[in-house]
Design a protein around this nucleic acid. Structure first.
Lengths: 222, 222
DNA sequence: CGATCTTTTGAAAGAGGTCAATTGAAGTGG
DNA sequence: CCACTTCAATTGACCTCTTTCAAAAGATCG
């Protein structure tokens, strides 16, 4: 697992070498991953901090028999791959063709040493991941299928709704593995919300969703 | 929620007479909470860092209709109550009579500023909480009832097994709310493990559990 | 256009939840 | 020490939500 395979090796893309983290000299460049390819794997050593420039990433854990739980989706602007021990605790994969900017991790920790006015970047990052995890545990442990799907739509709406259209990069199985459901149940919940005029699909793809009644959607998401 | 009620007010235990509330000079003292009382509530401002000296604490979130999800149990030695924003994201309660040592949070951050050789305390703390949350999401989203209960026993065994006896401070409802189950399902799973000779109860209480076959227990916990 | 992948939908089965009754443990006051 | 009460845990019967299995319709792509 420690060897970079051909499939997974990042391809350097030709764009700006500029630094996202209010930056330092260089230490940062961009890579492109084809859809479905692994960015890093569980138990691999941590080398970098990643930021999504375009595309989307899923981070997940798996059980021995193949059951998968997606901990989080990372969309444009999100930073991920922070660990404290030297090893990744989960796998990260590109959901669609994804460009990621790679920052040398030690360099970032160095910045933190600079201590910009009371709050430090890495701590804030980890804390916001923890916050998301806590909210998600409540969802996984205690919400019904329709509540889970509604909560997912609300979350995605806040993240990537452009011009009133929710353009999902992930498929139903990804959504299901994020919510602790099966893909059929996700599909049924979406159909139910459509029947009740909470949402519509744009003509073509069933991954483009228009939220017609956010108030009523919010009612489903307790 | 911001007012300290009589029930919830911590009782100073007989230790060092130094003042935690006044803030800076000395920043650590102990408080005792009766079982079932709140240590801090959701949306309350963050003032301190807590460490369990004796007893046990449950941290949970609730939905409007009363469904509860316990994010974590904190046992002797555990530190909890770390937030980055200024407000608690969940409620913390004493499960049994519990003594907690209270540390001024800013003071701790100050120490962190000292930067003890590369690793920083608060970051490590938050990261280990996040790690636990990630593992727990896998459990909540993808494990069966018996797998959840087995995983719970393995976790508790590692934490508080003394002299071969697991002495649980929490009741079945707490366990259920931790695992995303009902208390009846937890009870049934425990009975099933007992029937299969994986565990026994000590004569008296059903909160004292003897693990008779850790290897087989681990098989249930995938 | 054919092949593959995705999504939806239906029917049946199953895991866990709900409701209810019973037993057991713990604490209280006489 | 013994009723009496209360809380905790177990167990059973039934029900429901979600999963599983299967088929078909749609979308995407070479």
């Amino acid at each position: 697992m420690l060897v970079m395979t051909q499939e997974k090796a990042p391809q350097r893309s030709g764009s700006s070498g500029l630094n996202a983290l209010a930056g330092h000299a260089v230490s940062c460049s961009e890579f492109k991953y084809q859809r479905g390819t692994e960015i890093f794997g569980e138990a691999e050593p941590v080398d970098y901090l990643y930021q999504v420039k375009s595309g989307a990433v899923r981070c997940y854990k798996m059980l021995a028999d193949g059951r998968r739980q997606i901990m989080a989706f990372h969309l444009v602007g999100d930073i991920f791959g922070v660990e404290n021990g030297g090893v990744h605790r989960f796998t990260a994969e590109a959901i669609v063709e994804t460009t990621v900017s790679l920052t040398d991790r030690l360099n970032v920790v160095g910045e933190e040493g600079g201590r910009a006015a009371g709050t430090n970047n890495v701590l804030r990052l980890v804390t916001s991941n923890l916050q998301h995890a806590e909210t998600h545990m409540l969802l996984l442990g205690r919400k019904t299928a329709i509540e889970k799907v509604a909560a997912f739509l609300v979350e995605m709406d806040a993240r990537l709704s452009a011009a009133g259209v929710l353009n999902l990069p992930m498929n139903r199985r990804d959504v299901a593995d994020y919510l602790g459901l099966t893909l059929e149940t996700v599909s049924r919940a979406l159909s139910q919300l459509r029947e009740r005029d909470v949402l519509t699909f744009t003509g073509r793809s069933h991954r483009q969703i228009i939220l017609r009644d956010r108030a009523r959607l919010a009612e489903f998401d307790h």
